[in-house]
């Protein structure tokens, strides 16, 4: 009898202990691309690519413009809020204004695409991000190496004919 009572008490105590709330840690938002893209980027290389020449395998198909047209002065600053949500952007320097120079930005996907499609920086003129002005297709995503490469691709009649490739480094 004494033995039985001890076993019952042990089960009871164990149940009481087992009713403690589980500690799952503090909830954190997943890391987005915005954390990697925030900040000011300066130019390391600019190339103009003739997509029609590339398609036809004719030369020249590319001209380096890094030291031309004041591209050396090009900077772009991508801002985020305290929650790493994209807000405004601004282009600095005196290089040709090939795309919107200031406004609002976001990515078409805050995480790296899993289908192999490039991420795109969407540039908007309005804070509500309803008026999309330009798109910059990202070919090199910043990672351990603080480099960002995006392409401004122009199309005519649905056919892409020129690509301005900006290679940037974190300031």
């Amino acid at each position: 009898m004494k033995k039985t009572s001890l076993i019952l008490m042990f089960i009871l105590v164990m149940q009481l202990i087992g009713c403690n709330k589980t500690d799952d840690g503090v909830f954190t938002e997943p890391i987005t691309m915005y954390e990697k893209m925030v900040g000011t980027w300066t130019i390391s290389k600019v190339a103009q690519k003739d997509l029609i020449a590339i398609a036809a395998s004719s030369k020249p198909d590319q001209i380096l413009l890094t030291n031309k047209f004041d591209f050396k002065t090009f900077t772009i600053t991508l801002n985020v809020d305290e929650k790493f949500a994209p807000t405004t952007f601004e282009v600095g320097g005196t290089s040709p204004q090939l795309f919107l120079q200031s406004g609002y930005w976001k990515l078409n996907n805050p995480f790296p695409n899993t289908d192999g499609k490039p991420l795109v920086i969407e540039l908007y003129s309005d804070e509500a991000k309803t008026v999309l002005i330009d798109e910059l297709s990202i070919s090199t995503v910043p990672g351990a190496k603080k480099t960002l490469v995006f392409d401004l691709i122009r199309e005519s009649n649905g056919v892409a004919y020129v690509d301005y490739e900006y290679s940037l480094k974190a300031n």
């Binding site: 103009q48 690519k49 003739d50 997509l51 029609i52 020449a53 020249p60 001209i63 413009l65 047209f69 040709p96 090939l98 122009r154 005519s156 004919y161 020129v162 301005y164």
Partner: peptide, 17 residues
């Protein structure tokens, strides 16, 4: 004589080689 790129708009940079 080469006009680069082969197609150009008024929002582009034109290189003449």
């Amino acid at each position: 004589l080469i006009f680069f790129p082969q197609k150009v708009s008024k929002k582009d940079l034109l290189c003449i080689l």
